[in-house]
């Protein structure tokens, strides 16, 4: 049952989006987010949506998967739409019932806000999470934050912690599954009873899980020490990130996207 939970949203592939350097992708996402926030004209929003559709097509990720990325934030999106529709005051009154007024400006604001949210979410998912493996991502974060090392921030250690955490999620899920089965075999009942009773029923799962997590951490630390791991100092990489021409092209492309968005704002404001 727990095995059905999908973790790590990475979809392996070989598109240009998959091959881009993860560092470039992180910067590209930031540039894309800036573009989305600078968009004011409906046309610039249209331009960004078009760009996003293009990226989804290139990445060969199914529309259904993309739609699934929006699902968890559906409530926020609906909430934003509703507040914008009913609380934006303007000049063109469309509909009135008692004290509830809906203006044309409200509808416009709601539509743009929802588009902004959706492009932000799907943009990050398509550019980063769906097309970049977690390992590549942590590696990129380490490299991008490496200037902070000079300020004494242990960036390598943070990246290592992230990598280990990601690595052990499936292991711990499997472990939880086993413990649940074992306690069920001893007649533990997780499904019926009051909320308090069910909360208490989790204790026989949590304690063994914590203990095994600590044991694993201990063993892993010993194993790493046995192989002379001593942190980031002087450590070399097996996979060295190398920038290609298309990485720079992608970077320029996203800078251009911001420029185009600004130009549309200025000359094609609708």
């Amino acid at each position: 049952m727990l095995k059905d939970v999908t973790l790590g949203q990475f979809f392996p592939g070989n598109s240009i989006l998959h091959r881009l350097d993860p560092r470039i992708k992180i910067i590209a996402v930031i540039l894309f987010i800036i573009a989305v926030f600078t968009a004011k004209s409906a046309v610039s929003y249209g331009f960004l949506v078009l760009l996003l559709v293009g990226m989804v097509a290139i990445s060969k990720i199914s529309i259904r998967t993309v739609a699934k990325s929006i699902k968890p934030l559906l409530i926020i999106i609906i909430f934003t739409a509703v507040t914008n529709i009913f609380w934006t005051k303007g000049e063109n009154l469309l509909w009135k019932w008692k004290s509830i007024e809906v203006y044309a400006e409200g509808l416009r604001a709601a539509a743009l806000m929802v588009t902004r949210l959706i492009t932000l979410i799907t943009g990050t998912f398509v550019l980063l999470t769906y097309t970049t493996s977690p390992m590549a991502l942590t590696d990129a974060i380490e490299r991008l934050t490496s200037p902070l090392k000079k300020l004494g921030v242990p960036t390598h250690e943070f990246a290592m912690m992230m990598t280990i955490a990601l690595r052990f999620i499936p292991t711990l899920i499997e472990e939880t599954d086993k413990i649940i089965s074992a306690q069920k075999s001893r007649g533990a009942d997780f499904e019926t009873g009051s909320l308090l009773k069910r909360a208490k029923a989790i204790v026989p799962i949590l304690i063994p899980l914590f203990i095994s997590a600590f044991r694993r951490a201990d063993e892993l630390a010993s194993a790493m020490e046995c192989r002379l791991y001593h942190g980031g100092e002087g450590r070399t990489k097996m996979k060295i990130l190398k920038l290609h021409a298309y990485d720079f092209a992608a970077l320029l492309f996203f800078v251009a996207v911001i420029a185009v968005t600004l130009l549309i704002n200025k000359f094609l404001y609708i």
Binding site: E175, K178, I179, S181, A182, Q183, K184, S185, R186, G187, A188, V203, P204, I207, P208, I211, S212
Partner: peptide
């Protein structure tokens, strides 16, 4: 069936959780 067919898993020591051995045996 869970009460009539008692199942001891592989490495069952990972299921222990109570404060005392006696209390743990009494869980079932």
């Amino acid at each position: 069936a869970r009460f009539r067919v008692g199942l001891v898993f592989q490495y069952p020591e990972y299921q222990l959780f109570e404060e005392t051995v006696g209390a743990d045996i009494a869980f079932g």
